[in-house]
Nucleic acid binder design. Structure first.
Lengths: 284, 284
DNA sequence: CGGGCAATTGAAATACATCAAGGCGTGTGG
DNA sequence: CCACACGCCTTGATGTATTTCAATTGCCCG
């Protein structure tokens, strides 16, 4: 779930040096591809934004007054009042423990993570791959929740916002609520599609769709280089996301590569034959 | 998703006879078990409510100022301004077509229905069994959506509310928004649990949990008679809800009955050995 | 009475899991 | 710097849960 606006807007009006100190890894997340024309199309915001914000993925990939034409200026300014703290988690460490009932909402700033549910016997379902700008657990925006784990895949930086502050802001700002409602709808659809995938699609379809989905989400953030993307995921992650075993994922991926549909190399993935991948990814 | 409050509150302040004319099937949904003590605990609302509202499941099963102690009075009154129309759908007919982009939000009043997504090749995933008080498609509360079907299992009555009216009301009423946020959290959790079930549980676990979930939802509405509940579902519905085939569902249900865990007879289901069913339903 | 949907049951097929072994890269401690 | 352990990926053999196919029955409804 993109709540990029929350995290980004908090950034506005703060000191660039301080930000650099807080999370030096920020600018390295994606190659700096400053799209000046696009920025110019974003009303109000661009004029008030510091250079470091432009490099911040939470800004660049937000739909905060972006292309979709939402009126964002007032929302944007209001949200800058939210306070946050910035944290890091090393690769393979927990960002959020399943039993936690936290008063905070967490947003990923850089790196990759997974959110998942695990059964006592170890079976695990990952609900989503978390990318920069994603809220760690969407339903935690309004209520403290438990039962969800979030784990860093790569080194991750994230920010914690105070939930009650956020809600207080929300109560005064219907525009923000509108955006949230849209996000809810998207989030629900993603969850429903996941159920469809897990309940009714075969292994190769699931894996193909998983890759395509990830590619699209990255592309939307400008984090894809042509048909190539960073791919730090272990096959275990893919397996838990698609409801398969890691062994079977290995076989499916191997087959995809043998058929020339994708290429995986050195922690990056290239979609070679997109149309074929889409065909396997099957009936929309 | 319970949005009972929406449907019920719309009922307030209207004429009892007119209501009876509009949906004569209302009182027949559940045996009239008027819990006077419980009603007395609901602040404000009970005093202003007509007799027919008490019989209305949208009221009786709503959490509209109910036990959970939410302050509901102002919300309740505001919502009575929403207008609606009442409709019926015969068993096995569509309530909502997948391609529909409707300006309305639909709430089930009586009967049972399913909401589902279907692939071009016919594979179908049911996302939820709709009970009285449920919003037909939660994410349609804020945005028109498509791709979701809703079909009546039994004869169904439902109401259509105007989305923009609802949103307008919402914009003026933060209390209502709070309730919605809680609903969102619950809805998300249900979706996530569904993913876990479909991705990581075996057939018998899925079926057991499906039954237990349904029983609990019905019990919460006072629509269970001891351990027995109406069970108009076809095995095809269970199959599509659990990601299995109807044939396999038949085998699992047969086994459950042979083991004395449940009894299915004459479109009703009795949980005979609840603890065993829970054991099979497996690690919480 | 006929026809279609629903449920049951058994036999065969298959998709995926489980088990097991080997290789490769990487970090780590001697 | 080497040895070693460990996580990760691959591949083949085997096992099994679930699907598919098919035949039978009962039931409801026209």
């Amino acid at each position: 779930m993109d709540l990029a606006i929350v995290a980004h807007a908090a950034e506005a009006g703060r000191n660039a040096e301080a930000l650099q100190a807080l999370h030096p890894s920020f600018p390295t997340e994606a190659p700096p591809r400053f799209d000046v024309e696009r920025l110019a199309r974003i009303p109000d915001v661009s004029r008030e934004t510091r250079a470091d914000c432009v490099a911040c993925p939470l800004f660049r990939f937000s739909r905060c007054g972006g292309e979709d034409g939402q009126s964002a200026s007032s929302t944007y300014l209001d949200m800058s009042r939210l306070s946050y703290t910035t944290h890091t988690a090393a690769a393979r460490r927990a960002i959020r423990h399943p039993k936690e009932w936290s008063d905070y909402v967490m947003v990923i700033c850089s790196g990759r993570a997974v959110s998942s549910i695990t059964l006592p016997d170890g079976r695990r379902q990952v609900l989503s791959i978390l990318l920069p700008g994603d809220v760690v657990c969407a339903s935690s925006l309004f209520e403290p929740i438990s039962g969800y784990a979030a784990d860093a895949i790569t080194d991750v930086t994230y920010r914690r916002f105070n939930r009650s502050e956020f809600k207080a802001l929300l109560s005064k700002n219907y525009g923000l609520f509108e955006r949230l409602a849209k996000m809810w709808a998207e989030e629900s659809e993603r969850a429903d599609q996941l159920a469809l995938d897990l309940g009714r699609r075969r292994a190769d379809e699931r894996v193909a769709r998983f890759i395509l989905n990830l590619a699209e989400r990255l592309a939307r953030r400008g984090m894809a280089y042509g048909q190539t993307m960073d791919f730090p995921l272990r096959q275990r992650h893919i397996a838990d996301a698609t409801g398969l075993t890691a062994v079977h994922v290995s076989k499916v991926l191997g087959e995809f590569q043998r058929l020339g549909m994708i290429k995986i190399h050195d922690r990056s993935l290239t979609i070679v034959d997109e149309s074929e991948l889409r065909r396997v990814g099957a009936p929309h």
